[in-house]
């Protein structure tokens, strides 16, 4: 990343920021507002780097919601029963709705939505790695609903306390809806885990596969993340990757153990001295490989996203042109 970002942890002001000040003291006033817990709003002065990082964060988040709808959407025709199907349809619809809320929040920073959509379908912007892994069985849908959405809630509840108003407000609405996703996921897991031996085995198999992608969900360890310093200083990302991972483990490991699912990490243990969960680091090389496009389903997911975007274009065109005859009349 840029040198300005690397220097952000020290006392020096990033060069990019100082250059953009239109009157002296603007940056200091901006940072004082954040320190007071005030939200920054779209029309306010903000450092160029704040805007850039915020667009990156929100755009990735929006992309993840939109891409997350694909693996679950694929299972709608195979949902076991009408109630499960209705719930899954509702969840997928929510995810797409969340994407819309987040793209709107990113737009308030000056990046047009069509530009973000184009970057996504062209593979030029990122989204959460977990959606590049397959959902092989119905138990995967249970795991995604309970654990991926559970991890997302941990992340989004933290991000909600961040300094940018439109993002924070969108997240309030999103976390409210995610609560339903979590509950329906947990209900699925419990149903399978207390079911027939075949259902139990399917549940455990899916859990074991999702454990490592989940451990990567919050991103690389803090020492390796180039963004952390500046993101914390400007309350863009109020807690670090490692802090978020620990919150997730504190919340979910007891529930996993209560159910009796076997965690595929023999070294996972509660460390009394540090008050944290000790765990085996996931394969961060795999993480990098997947983020660069080398994951099991990157190409397939993006191709489908692109296809759906193309297939939807007739509707966008039709809606746009519908108004014209009336205007002429």
């Amino acid at each position: 990343m840029s040198s300005s970002e690397n220097s952000a942890g020290g006392t020096t002001t990033p060069r990019l920021v100082a250059e953009e000040e239109t009157s002296p003291g603007q940056l200091a006033a901006f940072e004082e507002r954040i320190a007071r817990g005030e939200k920054i709003e779209p029309g306010d002065w903000m450092p160029a780097l704040y805007r850039k990082q915020l667009i990156r964060l929100i755009q990735q988040h929006a992309n993840s919601e939109l891409m997350g709808a694909l693996p679950e959407g694929q299972w709608i025709p195979y949902a076991p029963g009408f109630r499960r199907k209705m719930a899954l349809i509702a969840k997928v619809q929510d995810e797409v709705g969340h994407a819309q809320l987040l793209y709107r929040a990113a737009e308030t920073l000056g990046k047009p939505r069509h530009e973000m959509m184009t970057e996504l379908v062209n593979g030029e912007s990122k989204y959460s790695n977990v959606f590049n892994y397959p959902c092989e069985t119905w138990a995967d849908i249970a795991m995604v609903g309970w654990l991926i959405d559970g991890a997302a809630i941990v992340n989004q509840t933290i991000m909600q306390t961040g300094s940018y108003g439109p993002y924070s407000r969108a997240l309030q609405r999103i976390t409210y809806e995610e609560a339903f996703h979590l509950k329906q996921g947990y209900d699925l897991v419990v149903t399978l885990h207390t079911g027939t031996p075949a259902q139990r085995a399917m549940c455990q198999e899916a859990f074991s596969r999702w454990w490592w992608p989940l451990m990567m969900f919050f991103g690389p360890p803090d020492r390796a993340s180039v963004h952390t310093d500046i993101l914390q200083r400007w309350a863009l990302k109020p807690k670090t990757n490692d802090e978020q991972r620990q919150i997730f483990l504190r919340k979910f490991v007891p529930k996993i153990q209560e159910l009796g699912l076997e965690i595929p990490d023999e070294d996972l243990r509660w460390d009394e001295d540090s008050g944290t969960w000790h765990f085996t680091q996931p394969d961060w090389d795999e993480f990098k490989r997947v983020i660069r496009g080398g994951g099991p389903l990157n190409a397939e997911r993006l191709a489908l996203r692109r296809l759906l975007y193309e297939q939807g274009s007739w509707l966008r065109t039709a809606l746009e042109q519908a108004e014209q005859p009336r205007a002429a009349a």
Partner: peptide, 24 residues
């Protein structure tokens, strides 16, 4: 960068010739 979405999925899933993640 992301892989080319148009590329053949089988070859894309094995970057650098590694047989990555065989259960997929």
């Amino acid at each position: 960068m992301y892989g080319d979405p148009t590329a053949d999925f089988e070859s894309d899933s094995k970057p650098d010739g590694q047989d990555a993640m065989p259960h997929y």
